[in-house]
């Protein structure tokens, strides 16, 4: 069974790659992608620590509720581990 995760709701200012529309939303890990340098440090010219990156799949119903065109359609996004809470 796929692993369930929730995107953190935090909203620090600056360069982050977790889109706002996914914050607080629950999905499942579609695949692990390996570790990539943290863009939140790279963006400022800093030495960046590798962070695990995952493709997370969400249903449109989970993201948009009643506004979804079709509940079972999906959205996949790449989210770094430090933005995910395991459920």
């Amino acid at each position: 069974m796929a692993e369930r995760v929730r995107v953190k709701t935090m909203s620090p200012p600056g360069h982050v790659r977790a889109p706002h529309y996914l914050r607080g939303k629950t999905g499942e890990i579609e695949r692990p992608l390996g570790a990539y340098k943290n863009p939140e440090q790279l963006a400022y010219g800093l030495d960046a620590a590798p962070k695990e990156l995952f493709r997370v799949r969400f249903t449109m119903a989970e993201i948009w509720g009643d506004r979804a065109e079709r509940a079972e359609d999906t959205l996949d996004a790449e989210i770094y581990a430090h933005w995910l809470e395991r459920l």
Binding site: G14, H15, K37, P39, L42, A43, Y44, G45
Partner: peptide, 8 residues
Amino acid sequence: FTVDGLRR
């Protein structure tokens, strides 16, 4: 620089 530096 990195692409993230440009995006920032």
